[in-house]
Amino acid sequence: MAENKNNYAVHVRGVSKTFGAGTTAVTALKSVNFDAREGELLMIVGPSGCGKTTLLSTIAGTLQFDAGEIDVFGSALQKMSKSQTTAFRRQNIGFIFQEFHLIPTLSAVENVSVPMLINGASRAAAEKKAHALLAQVGLEGRGHELPTSLSGGQQQRVAIARALVHEPRLIICDEPTSALDKENGARTMELLQQVARAPGRCVVVVTHDNRIFKYADRMTEMEDGRIARVHEIKDGQSPEFIPN
């Protein structure tokens, strides 16, 4: 990886993305400039359809963009081939989804071990690490259970363990708490906050859920495919504005 300038984890310049063509074309990102720093938990908020998920997908390397530059920990995404992008995601990105996306026929440990296996680790090494991470998220001893026998909050914690097991530098979360109750949402965010504070890491969270705004270090507000405002948040304080 190239030298990382200004402690930026993610550095987005002039990124545009249009879906479809002709009369049905939707421009979801309009020359977006955006940064996330190492060691921070950054939230992206904004009204439905403003392009939050689209921005997150381009940063994560799961969606190709039309113009602009994206630098993630020194890697320039616009210069990568498809297979290089796949390898980049495999090594550098941890994913946390709204719907958890755990594989129902695999035990918690097996689910957590998947990213390491994709990276070519042995089964024994992957499962050892997976057990350790499950313990970190408070699920010690429940590794052999299937996702269906765990509560929603527990499933999301399994998903967090899975997002961290291969030690990625960037953790990408789309609506991680919207399927959870208040208590489990808070627990999830506390975990993500700890993760973000670890050196050389960054957590980007897209959310609608104003109950969790207080966990953000900074908050980026989007409107209609653009970044409208960026808020610095003082420790432990809820920001005074409420989007929507």
Binding site: T86, R89, H101, I103, I118, N119
Partner: peptide, 16 residues
């Protein structure tokens, strides 16, 4: 497909 999509997002190649 949903799960395979998640695996693909997590960096599993088409070949794998």
């Amino acid at each position: 497909l949903k799960h395979l999509g998640a695996l693909k997002a997590m960096g599993a190649s088409d070949g794998l």
